[in-house]
């Protein structure tokens, strides 16, 4: 099994690696519980790399992202296939979560549990035999 490389825009830099958790569309307010670090579909984002097709939803979402930090339930990084909106960018800065967007094509290749390596340069690697 090989690796697949992507390149994204760096909105909040950071480097690391961990298992992916994938959500097609996600609104942080109402669909993420900051106290447990889980999404409404029951997936844990705490300590994982959250890959989102597109962000959506209420502006209160920035506070929810900060809540993940407050309750020590942060994801390792957030990767967005489309474009991050101001809610997500502000929340990631305030919560100190690495954020990458415009990672074209990642949704087709990623699934829950795959290991992702992300770098300050915007290089994102999926290791499918992780």
């Amino acid at each position: 099994m090989g690796t697949i490389k992507f390149h994204g825009r760096v909105l909040n830099p950071g480097s690391g690696e961990g298992p992916a958790v994938v959500e097609e569309a996600l609104s942080f307010y109402g669909e993420v519980d900051p106290k447990t670090g889980t999404t409404v579909s029951g997936k844990t984002i705490h300590g994982r790399i959250l890959v989102i097709g597109r962000p959506r939803g209420s502006t209160v979402g920035s506070y929810t992202l900060y809540g993940l930090k407050y309750y020590s339930r942060k994801p390792l990084a957030i990767i967005v296939e489309s474009e991050a909106d101001p809610i997500l960018v502000a929340g990631a800065i305030l919560a100190d979560i690495p954020l990458f967007d415009k990672v074209k094509g990642i949704m087709e290749r990623v699934s829950d549990g795959m290991i992702i390596i992300f770098k300050d340069t915007g290089e994102i690697t999926i290791s499918s035999d992780g």
Binding site: R9, P34, V60, Y63, Y66, E83, P86, V89, D101
Partner: peptide
Amino acid sequence: ALGAERLIPIKHAHVSGISYGTIGEHGLA
């Protein structure tokens, strides 16, 4: 992220989303 080139001064701000019911303990934090 939005493609803005610079910052500009503002004359006033109005802050929303300050209900405890909405932003919760972590918003307060």
